[in-house]
Write a protein that binds this DNA or RNA. Structure first.
Length: 806
DNA sequence: ATAGGGTTAG
């Protein structure tokens, strides 16, 4: 039978009977465009009856045959023809159409369903409240929200909005299209709700990562005495497992115990709870449930072992794996798949390799999905070579494995490899999905590749790739991190639905660029709209206060974070406050603040104080901070150098020599400076004094020209920075050969006059490069955007957006 | 004839 189905389905692709014109805007009275709708010719096939007794009534073959038969017999005109099989004959014409639509939906041919709908509207057939839900489902499957909205209008106009099925399917459609606000609107306006309405609302919030809202609906549902069925309960638990935190996980557990009688689905529900607890980081609860299970099957073992690995209890996981084998329960493909994926999650390369060899030794068939899991794991562990060898060993590659390999390169910051692979993928006609796009876009953000990022954005728009909130957030983040804050804000302001991640991306983007005021205004707007900030929001907000020098505002917000929002400040938040006080020159106050912290200060805290001491030339307090830092991380060269700079600024040359000697004795090397610049879609890297680039000659000529022009403009090198250099030889490659200057020279050669130059650096910009770049921006009439480790500098006409304060 | 949902992947 399978063979039969297989051969038939090869010969008949997407059906499009000739009577159905392309579904266009005109046919529905308003402009609608869907790049997804691919129209094909109706295949030349005889419209005979069901050919085999094995054909399921809703198989795609059968569906197409019925469809073709209806066309051939002019079903539309007389509505009398007995269809192909007796079981449809008792149905009304409307029901027969609906049968076709649902069959196409079930076979994952939503485009065909929509063709039929368009046809019905064209011939003025009365579309009833039974058909609308099926059509909306097809819209959801295509993520075609424009058509969905049109149908919503049709529903209201034709008085079909008294039907709970219609409402539920409208909610589901909006949710599938990522428009959770519209789904909520439908939900709120419903006169009558059933249990499906409630679970649909919960699902749409969870899918759009809105945990708080989802939990609120669960609570409301509880108050209204609506109980989910066991199946709904099971699906709810597994839905929440990817999103919940420890507290929420425990609350969900309690909810299940109070509201489920555990009749039929005890083991599945418990297994889902085990999975949820482990993913929430609550391994002990997971273990308690697991141990309490009267019967354990391979699924429960898998969930438990995967949970151990996720919580980084590798030995415990391995022990349980062996215990499972002792109990003669054997892992299946999903078991090894899950465990390999979790190894990637915690970067457990050794265990991952072992599982790889286990599958080979135990006769597991290497499937595409298993290979994908391995590529993913090796990629996450940073072993791009192993990932690539698995990848290359596979012939019929699909989107998933492509995405996994691209993401492996992306995580290793191998921009050119990733973009090459993406090009190959497009060449071979494999359609990338949102996962592919997100990993490419976040790679561009990481390395600052604006051109490539823009190109991919263009591709997304042209190909009609669905832009969900995750992808939108990564785009907003990419534009911001690549220095194009305007592009970032444009996307953000166009977004209709905004979740907390999107708000965070924009707030962080503004503060990273020194637009403290804008960041704070955005935060206020968010509050006005009732969006609840989380701990990440406050990091962005505090940075904004720091950059704008708003000490009082920052302190007030710190109190509100605890008082109004009940958030527990993490060490990062305390670090922000130290930075805020320090940058404002309130060094003693910052020091006092550190003493009142409820936790042990770490390097972030002391580092913030040390930077402030350097800025305000306060060697005594600087010594205190540096001493703490060097105790925590004696090998860190940055702290040593900062300290030596502070001594130099205070003319304490003996102390400078002391730090230098310590560094030499301990063999502490300066972290090499690394800058990159993107030209014509390729990323070029430079280290300090780099001579490896193929165009080295030209670059150094340009550098000489730059130095000359700088001198003419009256620039003198900042000698205090030279003191950073430890070795004598390093003096040779001093100021002039800092990596950002090399990148700048390359940019001046290869970009058109007047266009901005964008550089990404791994360290902080040094004082000397900062003042040189200011002048260079004026000399060459260029906007120069430098992203350093902490923030952006926009150099323009001789000055910098940071106000020389970074 | 219509909407959602079935434990360990994506």
């Amino acid at each position: 039978m399978d063979q039969m189905l297989l051969t038939t389905s090869r010969t008949s692709h997407l059906p499009l009977p000739s009577m159905l014109l392309p579904l266009t805007c005109q046919s529905l009275h308003q402009p609608i465009s869907s790049p997804k709708l691919q129209l094909t010719q109706f295949p030349h096939q005889p419209s005979t009856c069901l050919t085999t007794p094995h054909d399921h009534p809703t198989s795609i073959q059968h569906t197409q045959q019925i469809h073709a038969h209806m066309i051939k017999t002019h079903f539309d005109n007389n509505h009398q023809n007995v269809p192909l099989t007796p079981f449809l004959s008792h149905l009304s014409p409307a029901a027969q159409y609906n049968f076709l639509i649902t069959s196409y939906n079930k076979n994952n041919f939503p485009e065909s369903s929509l063709q039929i709908y368009a046809h019905l509207r064209r011939i003025d057939f009365q579309v009833d409240n039974f058909t609308i839900p099926s059509v909306l489902k097809a819209c959801g499957q295509c993520s075609w929200v424009v058509l969905g909205k049109e149908i919503h209008g049709f529903v209201l106009k034709n008085g079909l909005d008294g039907d709970v099925f219609v409402h539920n399917s409208l909610m589901q459609m909006y949710s599938e299209c990522g428009s959770v606000v519209s789904a909520r609107l439908v939900f709120d306006l419903m006169a009558e709700r059933d249990s499906v309405s409630w679970s649909t609302m919960i699902r749409s919030y969870v899918r759009n990562r809105l945990l708080t809202e989802a939990l609120e609906v669960v609570r409301e549902m509880h108050i209204m005495h609506v109980k989910p069925s066991e199946v709904a309960m099971l699906s709810m638990v597994s839905l929440f497992s990817d999103l919940a935190d420890t507290r929420t996980g425990k609350a969900m557990h309690g909810y299940v115990i109070r509201n489920s009688n555990y009749d039929r689905l005890r083991i599945p529900i418990t297994t889902a709870l085990i999975d949820m607890h482990a993913k929430c980081g609550n391994l002990s609860s997971a273990k308690r449930l697991f141990n309490g299970l009267p019967q354990k099957n391979v699924v429960s073992w898998t969930a438990m072992i995967a949970g151990c690995i996720r919580c980084n209890k590798l030995e415990e996981g391995t022990k349980l794996f062996n215990k499972m084998l002792e109990g003669r329960i054997f892992p299946n493909e999903i078991t090894v798949f899950s465990l390999i994926i979790e190894c990637g999650f915690v970067r457990a390369l050794e265990l991952g390799k072992w599982l790889h060899s286990y599958t080979l030794r135990n006769g597991f068939v290497m499937t595409l999905s298993l290979a994908t899991a391995l590529v993913d794991m090796y990629g996450k562990c940073g072993d791009t070579r192993s990932a690539r060898s698995i990848f290359d060993g596979w012939d019929n590659k699909d989107v998933m494995i492509w995405s996994a390999m691209i993401s492996a390169y992306a995580q290793a910051n191998c921009t050119n490899e990733a973009s090459d692979l993406f090009a190959q993928m497009v060449d071979r006609g494999v359609k990338p999905n949102q996962v592919t796009m997100v990993s490419l876009i976040s790679l561009c953000a990481e390395v600052g590749a604006l051109d490539l990022g823009k190109w991919i954005h263009l591709y997304i728009n042209q190909q009609g790739v669905d832009v969900d909130l995750i992808l939108k957030t990564s785009l907003v983040d990419m534009y911001a991190k690549c220095g194009d804050i305007d592009g970032s804000y444009r996307l953000f302001s166009e977004a209709k639905d905004r979740d907390i991640c999107l708000w965070n991306a924009m707030i962080t983007g503004f503060s990273m660029h020194g637009f403290g005021k804008e960041a704070l205004e955005l935060f206020e707007e968010m509050e006005r709209l009732g969006v609840e900030p989380n701990d990440i929001t406050f990091i962005g907000v505090f940075h904004a206060c720091s950059h704008a020098g708003l000490v009082a505002e920052g302190k007030r917000l710190f109190d509100r974070m605890v008082g109004s929002y009940g958030l527990v400040p993490k060490i990062e938040h305390y670090g922000c406050m130290v930075d805020l006080l320090g940058r404002a020159g309130r060094l003693e106050e910052a020091h006092e603040f550190i003493k009142t912290m409820p936790m042990q200060p770490n390097t972030i805290i002391w580092g913030a104080l040390l930077s402030a001491c350097r800025l305000y030339k306060h060697p005594d307090l600087g010594e205190v901070a540096a001493k703490e830092l060097l105790e925590l991380e004696p090998q860190n060269c940055g702290y040593n150098i900062l300290m030596s700079n502070i001594y130099a600024a205070a003319n304490r040359w003996n102390d400078v020599a002391g730090v230098r000697k310590t560094m030499k004795d301990k063999g502490i090397k300066k972290q090499p400076g690394l800058s990159s610049i993107e030209v014509n879609g390729s990323v070029h890297d430079f280290v300090t004094g780099d001579r490896a680039h193929p165009q080295t000659g030209k670059i150094y000529e340009m550098l000489a020209e730059m130095t000359m022009k700088l001198k003419e403009a009256g620039y003198t090198p900042d000698t205090s920075v030279v003191l950073q250099n430890i070795d004598e030889e390093e003096k040779e490659t001093s100021l002039n050969y800092h990596s950002e200057k090399l990148a700048m020279a390359f940019g001046l050669i290869h970009t058109a006059a007047g266009t901005p130059i964008r550089i990404v650096k791994n360290l902080r910009v040094c004082d000397d490069c900062h003042s040189a770049t200011k002048l260079l921006s004026k000399i060459y009439g260029r906007v120069i955007v430098v992203r350093d480790r902490n923030r952006f500098h926009h150099f323009r006409e001789g000055s910098c957006s940071c106000g020389d304060y970074w």
